[in-house]
């Protein structure tokens, strides 16, 4: 294997990450397939559109927070993550958890009709109109569509999620070398699996090229939250989940 990592070790890393991913996904692949064509009716979409802005924001903050709790559990099960110092565990999760949620979201996205699973059924972008941040919503939908186009397997989604999370690009890491070693192994494992699964030699490069978009989406989310908070400070302070505030405020 590359850089003195044996194939056996890469395989062990891959198996651990895939298992961690499957154990901590909110929905199984089968559940998602069953739901894929259950879409919100016109009336249901109208109902979302008619909600006050702060109510829909709160609803989305709750959903995101719920998804993040699963990502924390995913991180904890990755071999090596809990061996990092506590500062770095918190830092990686704080800066990467929303990115992983967005990667995972492509599992619950139907690219054939551009709908996403929200509140039990699939619905299009118009469902989020009342949030008042069309740019962010359409950028998130574009991202999901572009990731779906790569036709990743569940194993590749798992390894890519881990690679996004365990990243040396985060500032203020106390043990960047330790993080780097873990990240390199994850990338080798991802590369190995993608070479096996994809005819397209550039598949991995295409996947990696989505990372800057992920980080731009998270920046945009923070900006939209700040703008919303200026108008509805009491909604954020009183009604938003404490974990959401801790991570993004």
């Amino acid at each position: 294997g590359p850089n003195n990592v044996s194939m056996g070790e890469l395989d062990r890393i891959a198996q651990n990450i895939i298992k961690s991913h499957l154990e901590t996904c909110q929905y199984t692949t089968e559940e998602l397939q069953q739901l894929a064509w259950q879409t919100h009716s016109y009336e249901e979409v109208k109902m979302f559109q008619g909600k006050p802005r702060d109510v829909l924001w709160q609803q989305c903050a709750i959903q995101i927070t719920h998804a993040i709790q699963y990502v924390v559990e995913f991180a904890k099960r990755i071999s090596g993550f809990m061996e990092l110092c506590q500062n770095d565990q918190i830092l990686l999760l704080k800066s990467g958890c929303l990115e992983v949620v967005l990667v995972r979201m492509c599992r619950a996205f139907n690219p054939l009709n551009n709908t996403v699973l929200f509140e039990g059924k699939y619905g299009g972008m118009q469902m989020f109109k009342a949030l008042g941040c069309d740019d962010l919503v359409s950028a998130v939908f574009d991202f999901a569509k572009s990731l779906c186009a790569l036709q990743l397997t569940e194993e590749e989604i798992a390894l890519f999620s881990a690679a996004v999370l365990i990243s040396t690009d985060r500032p203020w890491l106390m043990e960047p070398r330790k993080v780097q070693k873990l990240q390199e192994k994850i990338y080798f494992a991802l590369q190995h699996i993608m070479q096996k699964n994809h005819m397209d030699e550039d598949a991995l490069a295409k996947l990696i090229s989505r990372i800057p978009t992920l980080s731009a989406l998270c920046t945009l989310h923070t900006e939209e939250l700040q703008a919303f908070q200026q108008l509805h400070p009491e909604t954020v302070n009183v009604l938003f989940p404490p974990l959401y505030k801790e991570l993004f405020n």
Binding site: Q69, V72, E73, K76, R77, M82, Q86, Q89, I90, L93, K94, P242, L243, E246, L247
Partner: peptide, 16 residues
Amino acid sequence: KEKHKILHQLLQNSTS
């Protein structure tokens, strides 16, 4: 650490 009380707590909880 105080700033990330909940995250800290989630990391401490044993994996079920």
